[in-house]
Computed example of a mutant assay.
Amino acid sequence: MKNIAVLGLGKVGTLAAELLHGSGFNVTGIDLAAPQNKLPFQVKSLDLRDATGVEAEFAAQDAVLSCLPYHLNARLAEIAHRAGIHYFDLTEDVPTTNRILELSKTARGLMAPQCGLAPGFIGIVGASLIEEFDDCRSCKMRVGALPQHPTGLMGYSFNWSPEGVVNEYLNDCEVIEEGTRKMVSAMEWFEDIYIDGVKLEAFTTSGGLGTMCDTYAGRVANLDYKTMRYPGHGKLMNFFFHELLMRERREEAGEILVNAKPPVNEDIVYVHAAAEGRIGGQLLRREFVRGYRPVEVAGRMRTAIAWTTAGSVVAIIEMVRDGKLPAQGFLKQEDVPLDAFLATPTGALYAA
């Protein structure tokens, strides 16, 4: 794997392309409108709704990474499947992932969706904790991408795709509770969490577990994923989506929220994973807790959400190239060894 196309040159896509370029890949960045700033790799302007143009581009690639909104990914994965090349994306959307899983059964390359932060890195961390136990009774995974200096009642800024956030807040969530797989509503199961003295609330959101319920059914009695926010956020979002019925107008909801709470540069990504079980007959708890802030990557300061998302997928692509992960079929995030992930040039960013 040498030639890779990165689709979508927003903050995350541009950084992922720069990291791949720095890691030795021959990168082609593709967007509807070419970025104004000069980039160290080839950039092409292409309407990704043009199937003929996309097919011609994919024919020249060994792999493709989609950093586009989730609703575009299934069709792009189908084109990558026909071209016989590796496919990677950052989607949290469950139907999209299920479609890619079906494609993987006849794929000549690797089909690897959900390679971002959540799903993605959090699943790698959670799986590593589960594997420490002889008998794991629970694994709880939480992620929060937040402003460092929140203002207003919402305490939030939209540093991530509004489409993705709305999707996560409204779609049902799969969990394992007392050994039973079930679907529960988003923005429920509230709890308080403290990280470095900062009080946060956590509630269910969709997609964060990826394929983990499939993998750990019958092995882990309790498994769930929640998003972390500053206290009071979830109550306001429930009011906005359900009492004001904005759940029926998703696109407009995203526009309203971004207009009210635009992105900030000084953000923080909290990662909290905890597992409990028995080792040698003794009941124990293991945790992985981090607060990731903006850092300088590839010569420029990057927001925490940008580098934790882009870095995760790039580290996985590096592992596939180096033969540390399969080159065909479907990649589950829980099958990615955490130690090997952190040992990659890009994965090392998460070790701090």
Rank of each mutant, 00 (worst) to 15 (best):
N3S: 14
A5P: 05
A5T: 01
L7V: 11
G8E: 04
G8M: 03
L9F: 03
V12T: 15
G13N: 06
T14G: 05
A17I: 03
L20T: 01
G22D: 09
S23T: 05
G24L: 01
F25W: 03
V27K: 02
A33S: 14
A33E: 12
A34G: 01
A34S: 11
N37Y: 09
P40L: 10
F41N: 07
Q42K: 14
K44G: 05
S45E: 14
L46Q: 12
D50W: 08
A51K: 15
T52Q: 13
T52A: 15
V54P: 02
A56H: 08
E57M: 14
A59R: 13
D62M: 08
S66D: 07
S66V: 08
R75W: 10
A77D: 10
A77E: 09
I79G: 00
R82I: 02
A83N: 07
I85P: 01
Y87P: 04
F88D: 03
D89C: 05
D93E: 08
D93K: 04
V94P: 00
T96E: 03
R99N: 12
E102A: 11
L103Q: 08
L103V: 10
T106Q: 14
T106N: 13
R108W: 06
R108K: 15
A112Q: 01
P113T: 04
G116T: 00
L117E: 00
P119L: 01
G120M: 00
I124A: 01
I124H: 00
V125K: 02
I130R: 03
E131S: 14
E132Y: 10
E132R: 15
D135R: 15
D135H: 14
C136N: 05
R137N: 12
S138D: 11
S138P: 05
C139K: 06
H149P: 04
G155Q: 13
Y156R: 06
Y156S: 11
N159Q: 12
S161K: 01
G164F: 02
E168L: 06
E168F: 04
E174T: 11
R181Y: 06
M187D: 01
I193E: 10
Y194H: 15
I195T: 14
D196K: 14
G197A: 12
G197P: 13
G197N: 13
E201N: 10
A202Y: 03
A202W: 02
T204P: 03
M212R: 03
D214R: 13
G218M: 11
G218R: 09
V220H: 09
V220R: 05
A221M: 10
L223Y: 08
D224C: 11
Y225S: 06
K226Q: 15
M228G: 05
Y230T: 05
K235P: 02
M237Q: 07
L244S: 06
L245M: 13
L245D: 13
M246Y: 13
E251L: 13
E255L: 13
V258K: 15
A260C: 12
P262R: 07
N265W: 05
D267A: 07
I268S: 05
V271F: 01
G277N: 06
R278H: 15
G281S: 06
L283G: 07
P294E: 07
P294N: 09
A298G: 13
G299I: 08
R302G: 00
T303D: 12
A304N: 04
I305H: 06
I305Y: 05
T309E: 07
S312N: 02
V313H: 00
I316R: 00
E318I: 04
K324C: 04
D335K: 10
V336M: 01
A348S: 13
A352Q: 15
